[in-house]
């Protein structure tokens, strides 16, 4: 696991208040009810600040951002 993923996991843990988020990097965050709309926006805003990227809300396709691994891929693309 690289630092980017660690950073993403720590953001997810901060937002959701759950310590075990990210133990499985392929866990579906939306299907398991970990992220709702509000938490999603918070994660996106934090990602913007932390990585200095622009995440367009409507380009935000849930299926593309649904796991820790996928978020990491998207961040890498946008960086």
């Amino acid at each position: 696991m690289n630092t980017k993923e660690e950073k993403i996991i720590s953001i997810l843990q901060d937002v959701t208040g759950l310590d075990n988020v990210g133990s499985d990097p392929d866990e579906d965050l939306f299907a398991d009810g970990i992220l709702d709309s509000m938490a999603t926006v918070e994660v996106l805003v934090t990602l913007q600040d932390e990585f200095g990227i622009q995440v367009p809300v409507s380009e935000f396709d849930r299926s593309q951002w649904s796991t820790v691994n996928k978020i990491s891929d998207r961040v890498a693309e946008l960086e």
């Binding site: 709309s37 509000m38 996106l44 805003v45 913007q48 935000f60």
Partner: peptide, 26 residues
């Protein structure tokens, strides 16, 4: 409504830091 009104509004309020409290914002 979720994607084009709610999330956008949340995004805007959070970025501009208009309101601190997450619950109030939601």
């Amino acid at each position: 409504f979720r994607d084009f009104i709610y999330m956008r509004l949340m995004f805007f309020m959070m970025k501009k830091k208009l309101i601190k409290n997450r619950v109030t914002m939601a």
